[in-house]
């Protein structure tokens, strides 16, 4: 009889343990990403999925194709399908607030990655690249490289994205101190390589003598570079990007573009997955905004970096 009691207790203990493990194994994490048409965001989404899976969760990636309405559909589907957390790279700083709010209202934690939404309450936490501070450094580099004088152009990203303006404002907080540095053209190319190439072609027609171009991301910097090569002006125009994407890192190495700013998508994605894990384990106090520093990468320090991060 005593043996039976002991066996029964052991069995209950084992069942209890296995149930606790299953509690975590059963959790599903949705990764809603603004676009999979840019390798940087593919890397961000895949890094988040890998980390979530490594932590024992099921992960599924949703592509919003830079469309807030499609993002809304993904959130509705994720809520209806019973996902337990959303790792979120928003399409629009204002427009995406409503989607994050819906999930939060449904008691599903939302962790923003890289891109920001304009709210302190809609998301559980937001892990963001400190674009402004990095672009202050890029601005210093740009001003020195151009010897503080000459005409230049700026190619902006998506105008409704905070990163676009944090980058632009950080850059201008420095270069606007130099009256002989004159911005003669400024256009948006929506963070898109092909659009940036077209924008740069048109800028070069109107302003063939520009000495530099500041681009809000690497895809646009590479598009601008293609246009300068086509116009035979690659030795005249210095190009600056932002992201730390593979082709831009190679282009810095080859001297095709002057600099990029290395964001750390793997770090951001893994941090978001870890915060979701902490939430599942009962943590409820999170920093609302967690900026991650960005490194400026030039030919001087390129050996320390690889695409999307630092060498180990």
């Amino acid at each position: 009889m005593n043996y039976l009691n002991v066996w029964a207790m052991l069995l209950l203990l084992c069942l209890g343990c296995s149930n606790r493990n299953k509690e975590n194994e059963g959790k599903q994490v949705a990764i809603v990403v603004s676009t999979l048409n840019n390798p940087w965001f593919v890397f961000l989404a895949e890094s988040a999925a890998e980390k979530a899976q490594a932590l024992g969760y099921t992960a599924k990636i949703f592509d919003s194709q830079n469309n807030t309405a499609l993002e809304t559909d993904h959130f509705e589907n994720a809520i209806a399908a019973g996902f337990d957390a959303i790792l979120f790279n928003p399409t629009d700083a204002d427009g995406s607030v409503v989607n994050a709010t819906k999930a939060t209202d449904a008691n599903i934690p939302v962790f923003c990655m890289d891109r920001e939404i304009n709210s302190r309450t809609a998301a559980t936490s937001q892990i963001l690249s400190d674009s402004y501070a990095a672009c202050v450094q890029l601005g210093e580099l740009f001003a020195n490289d151009l010897e503080r004088h000459g005409d230049y152009a700026e190619i902006l990203g998506i105008v409704s994205d905070n990163n676009t303006w944090n980058r632009s404002k950080g850059f201008h907080s420095v270069v606007d101190n130099f009256p002989d540095l004159k911005m003669v053209a400024r256009q948006s190319a929506d963070f898109d390589r092909n659009k940036a190439m077209e924008v740069m072609e048109s800028i070069l027609q109107g302003h063939p003598d520009i000495k530099g171009v500041f681009c809000g991301n690497d895809a646009m910097a590479m598009g601008a570079y293609q246009a300068t090569v086509a116009a035979g002006k690659q030795d005249q125009i210095k190009i600056y990007g932002f992201d730390g994407a593979e082709d831009a890192v190679n282009a810095v190495k080859e001297g095709q573009i002057q600099a990029t700013a290395m964001q750390f998508p793997k770090l951001i994605a893994e941090k978001a997955a870890q915060l979701a894990d902490a939430y599942f384990k009962g943590e409820r106090t999170f920093r609302k905004k967690l900026p991650i520093a960005v490194d400026v990468v030039t030919q001087k320090n390129i050996d320390q970096y690889i695409a999307y991060g630092k060498k180990n």
Binding site: Y132, G170, R287
Partner: peptide, 29 residues
């Protein structure tokens, strides 16, 4: 040349969590 975020951040008296978005936080800088 007075730029960057040192003057805002060094004292630790202004924290990003108090702002709805980082653009406002940076504008303050």
């Amino acid at each position: 040349y007075i730029y960057g975020t040192a003057a805002r951040d060094a004292a630790g008296l202004i924290v990003v969590d108090s702002f709805d978005n980082t653009m406002v936080f940076n504008e303050l800088s």
